[in-house]
Computed example of a mutant assay.
Amino acid sequence: MVPEKIYVPIYKKILRSKSLRLKVLSILDFFPDKIMIKIQYFMYFGRVADIKQPKRFSEKLQWYKLNYRDPLMTKCVDKVCVRDFVRERGLSDILTTEYAVYHSAEDIEFEALPEKFVAKYNNGAQRNLIVRSKKDIHKADLVNKLTSWMSAPLSKLGREWSYYDVVGKILVEEYLEPEEDGDLTDYKFFCFNGEPMFLYVLKDRFLNDGLKLGVYDTQFNKLDVYRAGIKKLHQGLAKPKDFERMLDVVRKLAVGFPHVRVDLYNIDGRIVFGELTFYDGSGYISYEPDEFDFKVGSMFKLP
């Protein structure tokens, strides 16, 4: 089998080191948002973003970052505060068990925690420590990693304003056991004016072959669409148990926002809240075929 070719954005070809890319973005923090967003968009796609009259989803997300500022969005991107938002929407049953919230990693009562848990920094993506067994990790290592996340200077990066005023905390919560196939499937619903229109299904995040992504409609039919830069999920999947309840949950969480992505898990029929995000991939997303960017853009009615 020929290895799958993964799309590489222009900026990654120029600046191959991720740490170097982050340093460059930090240095350019003083640039106005509108200018920096146009630079970043061009560096990713090799084309100029039309923000005045956007038609693509990737362009409309840039408009959204620049022009739509509902204070509730800051609450919803905070992994601690969003739990209150979920409760306010009458959905406390989909929340994971919360063990503790800390303002400093030094305060973590390691001995009091269960054998398995997840420790999350509440601001930003990919800042989760999954502990499957306490014997496999030292408290000092846990504290050092979380402290490094909390002490890192706040960079504007993708110019996603809703993260700027989040007060740093550490959430320690329940570890979700994988499904029978050893995986934990992630369902990401794209909603526009409170209505889910399509979803990503992510599989194999923790398995040897690596993360794969498929795109489905809200009847759970697999679409011939792929997110560039992530391995393709080729096989069709069975509709999850209580899928209609998932859609109902999504609608309750999405109402009131022009656009939000609602992430859920479904573990043998148990629906579990993941997170809310307003700027998938910071808007720097490429689809195969490219026409899907326009199709999703037509779903997104800018306020």
Rank of each mutant, 00 (worst) to 15 (best):
Val101Pro: 06
Tyr102Cys: 10
Glu106Leu: 05
Glu106Asn: 10
Ile108Ala: 14
Pro114Tyr: 02
Lys116Phe: 03
Phe117Tyr: 09
Phe117Leu: 08
Ala119Val: 03
Ala119Phe: 06
Lys120Tyr: 10
Asn122Asp: 08
Asn123Asp: 13
Asn123Tyr: 08
Ala125Cys: 15
Ala125Thr: 13
Gln126Leu: 12
Arg127Asn: 15
Arg127Asp: 04
Asn128Gln: 07
Asn128Ala: 13
Leu129Met: 15
Leu129His: 07
Leu129Cys: 12
Ile130Ser: 06
Ile130Thr: 10
Val131Asp: 04
Ser133Gly: 14
Lys134Phe: 12
Lys134Val: 12
Asp136Asn: 13
Ile137Glu: 03
Ile137Cys: 08
His138Thr: 14
Lys139Ile: 02
Ala140Met: 01
Asp141Ile: 04
Asp141Gly: 03
Asn144Val: 01
Asn144Gln: 12
Asn144Ala: 09
Leu146Cys: 11
Leu146Asn: 07
Thr147Arg: 12
Thr147Gln: 13
Trp149Pro: 01
Trp149Thr: 02
Met150Trp: 00
Ser151Ala: 11
Ala152Asn: 05
Gly158Glu: 12
Gly158Ile: 01
Glu160Asn: 11
Ser162Gln: 15
Ser162Met: 15
Tyr163Glu: 08
Tyr163Ser: 08
Tyr163Asn: 05
Tyr164Ser: 06
Tyr164His: 10
Asp165Gly: 02
Gly168Gln: 11
Gly168Glu: 12
Ile170Ser: 01
Glu174His: 10
Tyr175Asp: 07
Glu177Thr: 12
Glu177Lys: 10
Pro178Lys: 00
Glu179Leu: 13
Glu180Cys: 04
Asp181His: 02
Gly182Tyr: 12
Asp183Val: 05
Asp183Arg: 04
Tyr187Glu: 05
Tyr187Gly: 04
Phe189Ser: 11
Cys191Tyr: 05
Phe192Trp: 05
Gly194Gln: 04
Gly194Leu: 05
Gly194Glu: 06
Glu195Tyr: 03
Glu195Ser: 11
Glu195Val: 15
Pro196Lys: 05
Met197Glu: 15
Met197Asp: 03
Leu199Asn: 07
Tyr200Ile: 05
Tyr200Leu: 15
Leu202Arg: 10
Lys203Met: 14
Lys203Asp: 11
